[in-house]
Design a protein around this nucleic acid. Structure first.
Length: 196
DNA sequence: CACAGGATATACT
DNA sequence: GTATATCCTGTGA
């Protein structure tokens, strides 16, 4: 069994979301004894039409305006929870969506919650990841520590590529989807046209 | 590969 | 009231 990675520093999230999204690739994410290595994340920024925060603070996205390191969880399509981590500064309304992890521990419990065996599909997608870890809207608005979420430092420097974000209809020109190009646990492959 | 069904909160008219 | 949403899965071609 591998030792748990030391947590990222306190200032880790005090940077623009596209920087944090890149830096978080390769970091360990754990919750309730299960987790893995983050292999895919997306940035959502302040003046970003694709961001929930774009039109200011509303009921749903209120926690996006909290301090860096705040957890923003919301329900999409009535079925799936999506996990975001707030970045930059209080009131900025920036966050990073965690889209996929490579499962490394607590795999049995994640298989149980997902109802599948294929490790490759266990946490490959924002909804799949939260289902596997048992994350729900209960964590919305809490800090990482309060939520019981652990983000550990990189053990190795991954090769990161950027690509257009998934599932959005605005600001599609921004390449704010960050992936570990060597990972086979992505929610979707990166477009052929993108070079690492 | 394409497609639709699932199920709900939120935001906007 | 209506449309849309940072999705996933099963089905059928």
């Amino acid at each position: 069994m591998t030792r748990r990675a030391r947590a990222v520093g306190r200032a880790f999230f005090d940077r623009p979301p596209e920087v944090v999204a890149e830096q978080v690739i390769g970091c360990e994410l754990s919750y309730g004894g299960a987790g893995g290595v983050i292999v895919e994340a997306e940035a959502y920024g302040q003046r970003d039409p694709a961001s929930h925060s774009y039109r200011g603070e509303t009921g749903r996205c209120r926690s996006m305006f909290g301090p860096p390191g705040t957890v923003y969880v919301y329900l999409i399509h009535g079925i799936h929870w999506c996990l975001n981590l707030v970045t930059e500064q209080p009131g900025t309304g920036a966050a990073v969506l965690i889209r996929a992890i490579e499962p490394t521990h607590g795999i049995d419990s994640m298989r149980d919650r997902r109802g599948i065996d294929d490790d490759r599909l266990l946490c490959a997608g924002p909804g799949r990841l939260t289902q596997a870890l048992g994350i729900t809207g209960d964590l919305d608005g809490l800090s990482l520590v309060e939520a019981g979420l652990h983000v550990g430092r990189r053990r190795h420097e991954p090769e990161v590529a950027s690509a257009p974000r998934i599932g959005i209809s605005q600001a599609t020109e921004l390449q704010w989807r960050m992936v570990d190009c060597d990972s086979r646990y992505l929610s979707r492959p990166i477009p052929r046209s993108i070079n690492a």
